[in-house]
Design a protein around this nucleic acid. Structure first.
Length: 447
RNA sequence: CGGGGCGUAGCGCAGCCUGGUAGCGCAUCUGCUUUGGGAGCAGAGGGUCGUCUGUUCGAAUCAGACCGCCCCGACCA
């Protein structure tokens, strides 16, 4: 989806706040409200304002690209589902009060979907009948609703949230593992592209057993659970390694490499094993935020939905499946928790709402206006997303707002610079500034 | 759902105890002066005090019920 390439702050809807709203406790919630990215509509339910929407879409797009890269196909299933589907799997009763149940005008039982295993299994099962139809992966990025007992932390644990959920379909468990592995690596790439260090941790596999369930955790002080891992995992960078996703052995080797070192959430943690496996100086104990969960569940859903495939030998077997979730909206909060300072958000360039903030320090000054308008047009021509602060306001207001919303680069145009033939380029993250001619700044940012 | 707290202008809050014309800071609008890190002066607009019921001559203030929101706990992408 295409986002507008450039906006003027004077014509934008960006209700920034100078003070912290009293209801926000954690950093990401406070900053998202202050930056005018979201607005709470109800407990755990938010409207996405222009700035927040842009970031949400950028994150969504990265998730999408990495799913496409491993050959998963995007679909879109509805938010509202029929209770019948869930009665078939038995989860209509199991899910309890977290499921938002509604009734239509004909008094049919419906629900706002908390996830889509039932639906995708019935879609697949109705149309795929042969071993020739697999392996197959499909995913969608859709709003979900879980009626949390106590929503909190803003977007991090809302009731309505945007989630990518993917599903794999295979003829047997061995092939299923290959699909699982592909998703595993896709997840590492996805998070890395957002500037996050996500650590896969073995998760509870429930009644199915096996080793095919991982939670992806990013480290942040405000994390909901305590996690323990080998420091080696923090130093590993998958994006630096080229790998052929169709080479099952290479993929497995990579997964083994990343799952080798000790890593566990408090639920799975074994202190004795931790101390035995990891030298003291490499033991990391921190708090983590779960931003993804992948799970191979075999025939758990294919059985009730009777989703069977005919093998090459003419036998009927239940399809083997897994599901792969990414909390897309939660990631905004996660990224902010991991990347901010006293002044506000520091977006990694890959998800930043704009790459450049163009700041006119003297709106109405012929020279400043001229340089800014010229740069504004040229950034657009160069395909650089730019937000131009053209408000007739004090410099301090603009500096603060642009720092707050976390745009990676600021191009500052003031009367002194205009006279001297230069603009100032500031890096939001490092705070480094340099003075250089406008053309040079343009060239540097257009790279 | 248990425990705690809050609801007064867009945001942050005071007023409530002890009932009597609804206030402050920031933000907004107008004018002048300012102009490289959230300006100064002067003026202006903005409120069914969460809702309902009661007590009272009179309720933001007292009582009851309800609704909403926040925090702690059990639960979760």
């Amino acid at each position: 989806m295409r986002l507008s390439p450039a906006v003027r702050v004077s014509r934008y809807f960006m209700p920034t706040m100078r003070h912290d709203p009293s209801e926000a406790q954690i950093v990401s919630h406070r900053l998202m409200l202050r930056a005018g990215m979201i607005r709470q509509e109800s407990a755990g339910i938010y409207s996405w304002l222009p700035l927040g929407f842009r970031v949400l879409k950028k994150i969504e797009q990265i998730v999408r690209e990495e799913q496409d890269r491993i050959g998963a196909h995007e679909i879109l299933m509805p938010t509202i589902q029929s209770a019948d589907l869930w009665k078939k799997s038995g989860r209509y009763d199991d899910y309890g009060k977290e499921m938002l149940r509604i009734e239509d005008r004909h008094e049919r039982e419906m629900l706002y979907g908390p996830t889509n295993e039932e639906m995708i299994t019935s879609i697949f099962g109705d149309h795929a009948k042969s071993y020739k139809n697999v392996p197959l992966m499909m995913y969608h990025i859709q709003w979900k609703f879980r009626d949390e007992i106590r929503p909190r932390f803003g977007i991090m644990r809302g009731r309505e949230f945007l989630m990518k959920d993917g599903y794999s379909f295979d003829l047997d468990a061995e092939s299923g593992r290959k699909s699982y592995n592909k998703q595993f690596l896709a997840y590492l790439r996805t998070y890395a592209r957002m500037g996050l260090k996500a650590i896969p941790m073995a998760a509870d596999t429930g009644p199915i057993g096996g080793d095919l369930s991982h939670e992806f955790i990013i480290l942040a002080e405000t994390g909901e659970s305590e996690v323990f891992c080998d420091k080696a995992l923090l130093e590993f960078d998958l994006t630096k390694t080229a790998i052929d996703m169709d080479d099952a052995d290479a993929v497995q080797a990579m997964v083994d490499k990343v799952t080798g070192p000790y890593a566990a959430t408090d639920e799975q943690h074994d202190q004795t094993a931790f101390e035995a496996e990891v030298p003291e100086d490499r033991r990391v104990t921190a708090r983590g935020i779960e931003v993804g969960h992948i799970f191979f569940f075999g025939d758990k859903y294919s059985k009730p939905f009777d989703a069977k495939l005919t093998t090459a030998d003419g036998e009927q077997v239940l399809v083997q499946s897994g599901s792969y979730g990414v909390g897309v909206s939660r990631l905004l909060g996660g990224i902010i928790e991991a990347s901010h300072d006293e002044s506000g958000i520091i977006w990694p360039e890959s998800v930043a709402p704009f790459k450049v903030a163009l700041i006119n320090l003297r709106q109405g000054d012929e020279g400043c206006d001229g340089v800014c308008e010229d740069l504004y047009a040229k950034f657009q021509e160069a395909g650089v997303e730019v937000i131009y602060d053209d408000r007739d306001d004090r410099a301090g207001v603009k500096f603060s707002d642009m720092d707050l919303i976390g745009v990676p680069w600021q191009v500052i145009v003031g009367p002194k610079g205009v006279k001297g033939g230069f603009v100032e380029l500031k890096n939001r993250k490092t705070g480094d500034r340099e003075e250089l001619p406008a053309d040079a700044a343009l060239a540097k940012l257009a790279e």
